[in-house]
Simulated assay, not measured.
Amino acid sequence: MQEASLVGLVRTILIILFIYFGLKLIFKWFGPLILKYFMRKMGEKAFKGFNPQDFSNPNSSHNNKKNIDKDPETKRKEKKPVGEYIDYEEID
């Protein structure tokens, strides 16, 4: 049967503190490098779908014309009357 001892408890606490401060120090040193890497990858993904030819000469593109003469097909529905408004007063 195993018994809990004070030496084992102190050893466990020291190991936990060593791991905590070790990881904290590693992230302090290498955190900015990791963040730069992920930000660069996210930027590449964000601009991957854009075609640089679309931005070079906007007058040559045939997709620049927009149809603004189109009437909206959906019309607003009339609101049905819900009922009478009742103002309640608070009683002290």
Rank of each mutant, 00 (worst) to 15 (best):
F47V: 14
K75E: 05
K77G: 13
T74E: 13
R76H: 15
K65M: 10
K79N: 09
D54V: 07
P81Q: 11
H62A: 04
I86K: 12
I26H: 03
I86F: 09
A46N: 10
R76C: 15
I34Q: 05
D87W: 04
I86H: 05
E73M: 04
M39T: 11
K28C: 02
L33A: 14
N51I: 04
N59G: 12
S61F: 01
I34E: 05
F50S: 12
K28A: 07
G22A: 10
F47P: 05
I68F: 15
P81F: 00
G49I: 09
F30P: 01
P32H: 13
Y88T: 04
L35A: 10
K41T: 01
I68H: 14
N64F: 10
L25V: 05
D69R: 12
G43K: 11
G31T: 04
N63W: 07
N57G: 03
N67C: 13
M42G: 04
F38V: 11
F27T: 00
Y85A: 11
F55D: 12
K41R: 09
N64A: 04
G43S: 10
V82N: 02
I68V: 15
D71S: 05
H62F: 10
N51K: 09
T74N: 05
W29M: 15
A46H: 13
K77F: 10
Y85M: 08
K45D: 01
H62T: 07
F38A: 01
F47K: 11
I34K: 01
R76N: 15
N57P: 02
K65Q: 13
K48M: 06
I68D: 13
F47I: 14
E73Q: 10
E84P: 04
P52D: 00
L35F: 03
P58E: 02
M39Y: 14
Y85Q: 12
F47H: 14
I34C: 01
H62V: 03
R40L: 06
N63H: 13
H62R: 06
D54S: 01
K75D: 09
Q53R: 11
M42C: 06
F30R: 04
Y20K: 00
D69K: 10
G31I: 11
E89N: 09
V82S: 03
E44M: 06
L25C: 02
K36F: 11
N57F: 08
A46Y: 12
P58Q: 03
K66C: 00
S60L: 02
G43H: 13
N63P: 02
Q53N: 14
L33E: 12
